[in-house]
Design a protein around this nucleic acid. Structure first.
Lengths: 109, 109
DNA sequence: AGCGTTTATCGTCGATAGGCGATGGGTGCG
DNA sequence: CGCACCCATCGCCTATCGACGATAAACGCT
């Protein structure tokens, strides 16, 4: 049985910045991270299943492994996902709080 | 009194695409358009006031007029805003339906 | 120790983004 | 008609993106 010990400790939702310029900055950063169809697809996949091995994601997408890895890096840099090492593999999963923050920021438009 | 005849004929909200790949594509396109703080600021400004002259926007932002014009073009290409000519000026305003579509798409994450 | 598997990183390449100043086309006014 | 104003576009430059193959690092297993 290969249940990766990945997602459990969910972080709390970060607060929406009070300063408008700061909010714009954060919103732009998150929006940019989702500014590519492959990254949207990856995020959706991580939400649907919870926690995915890179290999599984690569098999779902029409891109090379290295390309997928770079998209994952961008999502991780934006804080939208997290990657936990599970032996030789890495289990990626959504950071629900940050997704919620994104939705909240979009809601302020 | 300088009331530009800009925003009145609001377009209806486009439907959320049923095909997931198509939805991802559209969401990525809209997210990319908002993937820069200046563009977020512009959109917010157009929502706050309704309808803005390019000159006013340029005065608000720390960028050259040509740079602002390019950001406006990207927002327009994504469908988020519209630009109506008002004599020598151009009045930009929000396309509320598309903003609503964006919110709806983000809501599906 | 060595091997296969898995993933991240590197190097490269063309394309795109993002900034600016300068130019040019409309428009209204004198 | 000419002038001033407003804006879009062009050309240029640098930096980043997006894709790939190749390589390297970490791990489990035998």
């Amino acid at each position: 049985m290969k249940k990766p010990p990945c997602c459990p400790p969910a972080e709390p939702t970060p607060p929406v910045p009070t300063d408008e310029a700061e909010a714009n900055e954060r919103l732009a950063q998150l929006a940019k991270a989702l500014g590519h169809p492959a990254r949207v697809a990856i995020l959706r996949m991580l939400v649907r299943e919870q926690g995915c091995i890179v290999g599984d994601i690569t098999r779902e997408l029409p891109f090379a492994q290295s390309t997928v890895s770079q998209h994952l890096k961008q999502l991780k840099d934006a804080g939208l996902i997290r990657g936990d090492v599970d032996g030789p593999r890495v289990c990626y999963c959504v950071e629900p709080g940050v997704v919620a923050l994104f939705k909240a920021l979009v809601g302020t438009l």
